[in-house]
Amino acid sequence: MIASESDPAGADRRVQPAAGILEVRDLHKDFGGVHALAGASFYVEQGTITGLIGPNGAGKSTLINLVSGFTPPGSGQVVYDGEDITGHSAHQIARLGLVRTFQLSSEFARLTVIENLLTAVPDQRGSTVLAALRGKRYWRRAEEESVARAREFLGRFGLTDVEDLYGAELSGGQKRLLEISRALMGRPRVLLLDEPFAGVNPTLAREVEDILRALRDEGMTIVLVEHEMGAIDRLCDTVVVMAAGTVLAEGSMAEIRENQEVVDAYLAG
């Protein structure tokens, strides 16, 4: 992995070119005595959907938390679009276009559905103190544009009729949809979805799959954690199998199925 040039510690801050838009290199993370991540490495190519699978406790959520800046890494590197983002704060990473959702729904309960989406618009006019003090005239035009764009997403996710409901008033499935559409409002380049189909009914889940595929075809990169193998099979270009904090195997679903080690460790169980 290490490039041929000499590497005196700390002297060369340049990052080795990444193989894809996102690359994770030898990530380690301990929680007390638990090795949640024990040297996980893989890369993600732009414009693909990557599935992250593995038994409970394999370290999938920890990995997402590290990549998105919510958990400081023990050691290792996260390279996004050629830049080493290890240790960047979560909001910085999001602003770079790497946006994540959570395993547990995290809608803004006392904001309406459309407000939830509007919150995610980067640099929305009127979202600094000084701009706010300039009054509605200053930000109203930009607000209208964002409202229109938010409504497009609401339409796409079937949330048009609940635009004015509070986040707390949605069903479990609607909350997942809200979260994905909210993440999209920030125009991310890479979307990290932690169990996006949990609690979503199968019909709706299929519709969301279609949306995710369409987003990929528009050039977005998606990494998702999912337990339902049917969805993984239908959606993912690449599958990364994790177990005990490391990557067990990486490849297309067909390749993964032929990997006896994986079948023993996970698929059969």
């Binding site: 909001h91 999001a94 995290s106 809608e107 006392r110 919150t119």
Partner: peptide, 13 residues
Amino acid sequence: AMREDPVAAEALG
């Protein structure tokens, strides 16, 4: 939004 869920707000940048 920050009042409702600071972690999610952070995730949105």
